[in-house]
Design a binder for these strands. Structure first.
Lengths: 145, 145
DNA sequence: CGGCATCCATGATGATACTG
DNA sequence: CAGTATCATCATGGATGCCG
């Protein structure tokens, strides 16, 4: 019954349970939850990619479009607007013809790279484990059927 | 033009741009992207909440149902299945009548709490900034209209 | 170049009822 | 208790075409 993780990560475990208890007591209003707010942006299809693309230097709309790859102009515009609205990205228009617009991370946008980078690193180092678990699960399922 | 964030977080910035370059070179297959895999789970409506609820101790289905709050049995089942499939959660059935089932984090599940906790902490400390940015943005929009 | 408006397909989520 | 099955709904995202 005892798994390999008994007592391995007490600090974070403690942290998370306390957070959960706090949410419980506060009633946990999902509509106004900071975590949900952030995860909505982190969880959508393009935000993380755009944030990453802007990490090094500001980029223009069309440069972003090329950099991100197969994103449509519609989604690029929409995602950038949301990131801008949330204060993660700054939009600058230069009154040239044709118009020139560039996007850059704000201080807030830069600061989110830190926790985000940790999550991405976890994803990359642990992805093999996820894939293995997935294959095992699907095989068991196939046997059961 | 120079913002307050010039040269503030060089390490993470560097990390992220290198990651982005690596993705570019590799062709960035979105269908088989580790980050996308993780974000899909982190970004959905219930996974983080369930992971958090299971941080301290294993819980039974109905206990989870109560703990998480307004989740439907349907979504609880579905989310738990996915978490189990990805190897983050372990499901144990005790052959009693009526049936007893409990869910607990695997080592992999525990390990993701670390980067996740950092992201949640960021969300909670920076949420005021996000809200402020959002209000400012919406006001400007209202003025323009 | 940097968008916006429109339409549409898909998947995610919710409500409800039923079951071993 | 711990689900499954079915249907309805809604948000997300893609395709296309137009504009200053």
């Amino acid at each position: 019954m005892t798994k390999a993780h008994e007592g391995n990560l007490p600090a974070v475990t403690e942290e998370m349970s306390q957070r959960f208890d706090a949410w419980q007591e506060a009633g946990f209003d999902a509509a106004n939850c900071p975590v949900r707010d952030v995860l909505d942006r982190v969880g959508d299809k393009w935000s993380v990619l755009i944030l990453t693309a802007l990490a090094e230097e500001p980029k223009r709309f069309s440069a972003l479009n090329r950099a991100v790859g197969d994103i449509s102009k519609r989604m690029l515009t929409q995602t950038l607007r949301t990131l801008q609205r949330d204060g993660l990205v700054d939009r600058t228009v230069y009154p040239t013809t044709p118009p020139t617009v560039d996007y850059r991370l704000t201080e807030l946008g830069h600061s989110v790279l830190e926790p985000l980078s940790a999550l991405i690193a976890w994803a990359e180092t642990r992805h093999d484990d996820i894939r293995a678990a997935r294959n095992a699960f699907d095989e068991d399922e196939a046997v059961a059927a």
